[in-house]
Design a protein around this nucleic acid. Structure first.
Lengths: 343, 343
DNA sequence: CTGAAAGCGCTAACAA
DNA sequence: TTGTTAGCGCTTTCAG
């Protein structure tokens, strides 16, 4: 690979360049650039105008090595294209806004091995804290996080034991409560539609809670439909057509997320089915997308923004008791019956 | 803020610790950990097992400072929650996969000042290259990028002059071609629905190209509807209701993106309007979401995945001629008439 | 308020 | 194949 040589390839500027241009010692230039108060206004002005004139950009690598401080927070999530996560990231960003900390994102694509790798890469930059989706990691990843000597917050899920802190909801309980709402509305022949990703533990736990509640009421899942790959409206339509052709007597469809649920809803409406009379539907997440459909899909709000917010507050040290580690915060998801569960 | 002290807060391990544990010099440990070939298998094994046993994670900050190389590529985009960008990021990730480079994302929320700040922060980590959405930046941001001495690829848009390289489509032309397709189908009373974000230059250029083509054919926009904030299906419904109540005789609606376009389409179908006979619709982007609607919304595919791919290839040095800088790649967007433009 | 010296943890370059 | 030496560009500490 040839070296990159733009027309005016100069070596990046250093503090020394600013020092020479301003006639102020490197040390004092450093003070000004870090906004420390103990510099005279005259010196400060000289330095700032020299830095601006040169277009100096500080080297954080050197700064971080010398100060042993890095203003980065690693955030590890399954996917950027899943509409679920942008809202979590929004919560994190807003909580970090005036803390001087900056989030850095990495995606795992729901693969444990890739998660381990992303965590390793991030830790090698010695971040101030880590926020990781889920409680299930490889043994090596768990060990790295536990030994990093920084706050680690596991988010989204609280059905399990955290390495350090956790913020999330109980997916088992979310599944159970949805099952109870469905049965209370009188539905009995219930089908489930979801992905077959082995490492999507939260979807698995929701289904476990869901079937547990059915069993407790003497019911069973009447049919299930699985898919591989990402979620989309089209996939939801397709799966719904498939499950209804195999089991035409179903009176309820529980989807593992809102995107495929919305696709299923559009399909049912286009087919002229009576929703929620003849057949009911429910998804999971509380996506904003649902507001745009003719009928509002029943769902469970996953508190995504608040999860991001609270997790970032823990990392940033904005906690009630002043202690940073060891928090366990369970948020309460709300079942929203919308227009697709009768009653 | 109290210091974070987990139960076993140890100082992070260093090369020296691995060196002592394995009885091999620091330098050789470093060689092993960087996978260099000139180490004997016996030594290599000793080092690797010691490193694994200790749970050593290398310090990239020190490594980067010493080697003057950073395996990071800065990627600056307007928004993570806009469904447009995940696909660009996917293209970037796949092109970077086996290059040893790692993308780092930052969002600007369509604000020039925030973009400048994000670029400054990223450059301070001395990345190997930068990929930035759009050609319009603050003067300071442009200067920083031009002087960074690294490959800079501006993406999405090619209507303008790049700092170094650019990969994208002509939005002006995309607007023009959609106008021509619409007029060719016989529509004449055309409305436009879009955001009022002043810094969304690509939406602005599409509209300019669009009206330019109308004017050339002796037509004018019959009505326009603007909104603030993010795009959503609900917003699309709402705006469509508003513009049609103000201008009921419109026979075509051009939306600045697919999300509000899809909302508008759902609205029209729910209202029982004859699409595309009585009224036609079109959006922009070619979102996957469109595959799930009863009628396929007309759109222009923005080649998002390929844009990310080609941009990352330039940064990674995977170019035909072996030269890294100064590339200008124009991709050709395709107008897709779908089911919402007649003919 | 300002400056001088030392060193953060690693790697380049060279020597053995 | 392995070890030694000298920094990378900044900040900490301490002296003025």
């Amino acid at each position: 690979m040839p070296p990159y040589l733009p027309p005016e390839a100069q070596r990046p500027l250093t503090l020394r360049d600013v020092s020479e241009a301003s006639g102020v010692s490197e040390m004092t230039v450093s003070r000004v650039l870090r906004n420390r108060a103990d510099v005279s206004p005259a010196t400060r002005d000289k330095v700032l105008s020299a830095a601006k004139a040169l277009g100096y950009v500080p080297n954080k690598i050197a700064g971080a090595l010398a100060s042993q401080r890095v203003n980065l927070v690693g955030v590890v999530i399954p996917s950027l294209s899943n509409m679920v996560f942008p809202e979590v990231l929004g919560g994190i960003s807003s909580a970090l806004e005036d803390s001087g900390l900056q989030p850095v994102f990495g995606a795992t694509e729901y693969k444990a091995a890739q998660e381990e790798n992303v965590i390793y890469e991030m830790l090698s930059w010695r971040p101030t804290g880590m926020i990781v989706a889920g409680l299930e990691h490889t043994e090596a990843a768990t060990a790295m996080l536990a030994n990093a000597g920084i706050p680690v917050v596991e988010i989204m899920d609280i059905d399990g034991d955290p390495i350090d802190s956790m913020v999330g909801i109980s997916h088992r309980r979310a599944g159970r409560e949805m099952a109870e709402a469905i049965m209370a509305a009188g539905y009995r022949r219930i089908g489930f539609l979801g992905s077959k990703m082995p490492d999507d533990h939260r979807a698995r736990k929701r289904l476990e809670g869901f079937t547990e509640a059915l069993t407790a009421a003497g019911l069973d899942l009447a049919a299930t439909e699985h898919y591989a790959g990402g979620s989309s409206l089209a996939k939801g339509r397709e799966m719904t057509a498939a499950i209804l052709s195999r089991a035409p007597d179903l009176d309820f469809l529980y989807y593992s997320n809102d995107m495929i649920g919305a696709g299923g809803l559009l399909y049912c409406l286009d087919e002229g089915l009576d929703v929620p009379g003849q057949i009911g539907l429910a998804g999971f997440n509380g996506l904003e997308l649902l507001d745009g459909l003719r009928l509002r899909l029943a769902t469970t709000d996953a508190c995504r923004h608040e999860i991001g917010l609270r997790a970032a507050e823990i990392v940033a040290g904005k906690t009630d008791d002043g202690v940073i580690g060891g928090k366990r915060i369970e948020l309460q998801p709300r079942v929203e019956k919308g227009d697709t569960i009768r009653g």
